[in-house]
Design a protein around this nucleic acid. Structure first.
Lengths: 344, 344
DNA sequence: TTGTACGCGTTATCAC
DNA sequence: GTGATAACGCGTACAA
């Protein structure tokens, strides 16, 4: 006999299960003496209510589901870290699902999460996802939902994202101010929300400095392995060739860096390189690489906070809106960061 | 009315819930006609059994718990990736818990996992954990348990680890063969299982080449931020100073690299550097850094496979033993890997 | 103030 | 071959 139930307590104290249940929940109409007795006994036997039974009963499961494209990815693992931190000290557990960038698996994961009676869902869309009807169903079920990072305009839900426009603008502007004019942009699939925002920031900065936008300088990857090498090859074959690279992910920054080194292109003398990465990866990369730092952990934290708010105020008006988390431009000219500019 | 239950089907088809249940499970003693009817109806309404109810009923919850020190860590996020992949196509879900290297949280997480009726538990011990009685309790409850990476000798359970001894031996031998004799070892807390194994490999290689072991050259970190800097300072102040560094983690390798660069120590001309890292991080680090690659994903996969075996054969003899996953030594002399030596 | 009875979704057991 | 019933652990209307 190991896991102890309310029934055990009732039997031991010669009470009914309902009395014990009420005492444990600190109900009003209950004899303080009985209450004390029950509490003490429960404490002593280290009683824990069975969360499964609670979920079945229909009340909250104290668990939130998190659906991300991949865990083995610095951005998402940091975001999950932030989520878990908030969830933990609010008494929630985190059940994690990976879509592996597959729409089908995303749908399956949503269903599973619902079946497991999560109290709410935190989702970052797979790159394959364009149809969001599986998420609209969630809203109809009145299940709290918050999107983060990879979001969708078609959904009227709370969304938490980095200031991708601002970050891209700041990065591009920095390159322009350094005298660069042929700035290549290596990015991820165009239909993902953040791609558009970054592209917009990039274009806005070009416009501000009167540099015409050249479609040939923009390349879209697909999360495949070693795409950057080919992109760099193609771009360096252009005439005139690029004098700067602005990349949209860790992977592309890394691939670009490696490709340029392999081709013996001097950084930053011949071409400048600046990437949208997170701080840790930026640290690992070359000291000559400036970065726009993605606030992954903060995004996770904010998303979790918003979700838990929604869960706990489920019956009041649901606050809907987009939360933009500022990004930071870290400029590294030599072996250490020379300036840190928060993007307003 | 959204989620449909066995009861709904029974009502609609004028059957009893038990009949429907049996039909769904494909029981022998059942009218094929009825069975077909039920199946079709269930299919049409997209019926899914409620996993919560199943868990409460006492059978399997089709969920496995994973307890790791940290998610935002390449090693563990890759391991989790491997775990999730296996679990997913075996029909299990993964519930993740972080200990943040705290013994207290580890115990709490184990309790929570048990309360959530996971079918099995995959654990990598926190650095604070020395008492493993909370895990011994699990064994008494007959709950399948597999340890990975950070394991404990005091437990008679299946364990999956990298060949830390072999990796450390190969790394040290490589440095020795390159003529290094004062090899510093920057490592993690001594009471963690893998630390001892690596230290043993390091010492064994020294012995083989007749180089005396010098305790002063070994430094233990505590997962704190920027520890490597101070370690490098202290070590470089020694006389004679080290001519090589062998580090036990990504973080230490990175910190060491940064510290050496900052002190303008030429790598690998003045000192060699070799680290215990995973492939991705190794890629990010300097091209002159050789590494012992940790097979994080494979370890996760193997651990998950072993655990699921245990779960599904729960009533037969439990296979206990330690699985050692080979490590690889990747030697980088110039800008790319020049040789890859699997450690036997 | 406390006890009885029921229901959440499912399966196992026993009866028919 | 099928149906009624109990049970898993808990909370709560209703009764006392």
């Amino acid at each position: 006999m190991d896991t102890i139930t309310i029934k055990d307590i009732a039997r031991a104290l010669n009470l009914s299960t309902s009395t014990v249940s009420r005492a444990l929940r600190g109900s009003y109409e209950i004899n303080p003496e009985t209450k004390r007795l029950v509490m003490e006994y429960a404490e002593r036997l280290n009683y824990r209510p069975n969360p499964i039974a609670l979920s079945l009963k229909g009340s909250s499961s104290r668990a939130i589901g998190v659906i991300v494209p991949q865990i083995a990815n610095y951005y998402f693992s940091q975001a999950i870290n932030g989520i878990e931190a908030i969830a933990y000290n609010r008494g929630y557990h985190v059940i994690i699902f990976q879509t592996h960038e597959s729409y089908e698996r995303e749908v399956a994961n949503v269903q599973q999460a619902v079946a497991r009676k999560v109290d709410g869902l935190l989702i970052s869309l797979s790159s394959e996802t364009s149809d969001v009807s599986h998420l609209k169903e969630l809203q109809q079920k009145n299940l709290p939902l918050v999107l983060f990072d990879r979001v969708s305009d078609e959904l009227d839900v709370t969304q938490v994202v980095a200031d991708n426009f601002g970050g891209a603008f700041a990065a591009t502007e920095h390159l322009l101010q350094a005298g660069r004019r042929r700035i290549a942009h290596l990015t991820i699939p165009p239909w993902i929300s953040i791609t558009q925002e970054r592209l917009a920031g990039y274009r806005a900065a070009l416009e501000k400095y009167g540099v015409p936008f050249d479609e040939n300088l923009v390349r879209y990857g697909t999360f495949g392995p070693d795409e950057a090498g080919q992109m760099v090859d193609e771009l360096m074959a252009l005439d005139p060739r690029p004098d700067a690279f602005f990349t949209a992910s860790d992977r592309l920054a890394l691939g670009c860096l490696a490709a340029l080194r392999q081709r013996k292109v001097a950084i930053p003398d011949e071409v400048s390189l600046i990437g949208f990465t997170n701080l840790h990866v930026a640290d690992l990369l070359s000291p000559s690489l400036s970065t726009v730092v993605q606030p992954a952990q903060e995004i996770g934290q904010l998303a979790a906070e918003r979700l838990i708010e929604l869960i706990e105020r489920k019956h009041r008006a649901a606050p809907v809106g987009t939360v933009k988390v500022p990004t930071e431009l870290v400029v590294r000219e030599s072996s250490r960061a020379t300036s840190v500019t928060p993007v307003p």
